[in-house]
Nucleic acid binder design. Structure first.
Lengths: 177, 177
DNA sequence: CAGTACGTACAGTTTTTTCTGTACGCGTTA
DNA sequence: TAACGCGTACAGAAAAAACTGTACGTACTG
């Protein structure tokens, strides 16, 4: 086997692993492979180059790259004299990790907290209402406790994300052990 | 609207939010709803009760509950005199969070690290080989650097997971702010 | 030792997601 | 201003997944 092939294989294995890994968090394998491909490129790629690299449609490249942009796993690059859009992988995996989970966690927090606060208010009024059936009353009280605990947890998660975004986490878990 | 209905609605909203949230991380909405339903139950449920609760097949409940078990989001409960399997939601969300991401992250680390180490070795030998084409040689060197960085990142991630599993993280980001 | 209850493997169906090709709007070029 | 190149919206096709019902192995029950 010649050197080029060896290089190719070595990359391919890692790209596949990256892809599987991303797949664990709900990212399509194709999108994962695209990220992997970009990761090993020296420079940024155009949609057409990606299409050739992965053997997929340009449409797919367009949508996939947009997903990666939203996750901040790739960035758009401007290059003088080049009309096509250029994209390159964010090479710093610490940063990728932080962005990826910060985005997801904040989204989740926001979904859950707003639902919980709304429900919590309803349950409060249910408990305060004299006419509420005693069984319902008891269950509502239990639910209130659960939701209160959950909200406390979300406060904690928010602070965890803060420590990621501010890089404070690296004071606690340093990059170089 | 009567009290029971109100309670039901309040719960339903939160269950839906939980489900959406879990869906962000690649967990099916159905599985999310099952967790949510279990979360609001006072006691553990049997597969048949879940089936009735969610209006789905028993087979689905069986497979869904297994997924939740693997994520340690539910636990199997033994109750004297009851032949059916009983499951209940892990109520502590800090713990759920830790388990969920520890499991996922460790899996990802293991996939990626082993692929990277293998490829790294191949690339090393490629670089050491005198006969390697100079362009390939240069690219291999670059890849080696990338993989070395990535492995360093995975070492960090491993330590982060350690701090989760050991609860040390709560020293840095305390539960009560 | 039947008979029954339970959980799940498996195959088939339905639903959802992913992927592609065409068509179009916009901006650049000649 | 016409012609071209680019990225993407959209609709349909292909692939994947979620879900169900049946059937079966195992473990209790009488």
């Amino acid at each position: 086997m010649n050197g080029e092939k060896k290089l190719e294989h070595a990359r391919e294995r890692v790209i596949e692993a990256i892809s599987q890994n991303m797949n664990l968090y709900g990212v399509t394998e194709s999108i994962g492979r695209l990220y992997g491909a970009l990761y090993f490129q020296e420079g940024p790629l155009t949609l057409d180059e990606m299409k050739d690299e992965l053997g997929m449609s340009k449409t797919s490249m367009s949508t996939s790259v947009r997903s990666l942009l939203e996750l901040k796993m790739v960035g758009k690059v401007w290059k003088k004299g080049v009309r096509k859009d250029l994209y390159q992988a964010e090479p710093d995996w610490y940063q990728t990790f932080i962005d990826f989970f910060s985005i997801k966690w904040r989204t989740g927090i926001s979904i859950n907290v707003s639902a919980m606060e709304k429900s919590l208010a309803e349950l409060q009024s249910l408990v305060e209402d004299e006419g509420t059936d005693s069984k319902v009353h008891a269950e509502a009280k239990q639910d209130i406790e659960k939701l209160t605990d959950a909200l406390e947890y979300y406060d904690w998660l928010n602070r965890l994300v803060d420590s990621f975004e501010s890089k404070e986490i690296f004071n606690y878990i340093p990059k170089n052990s």
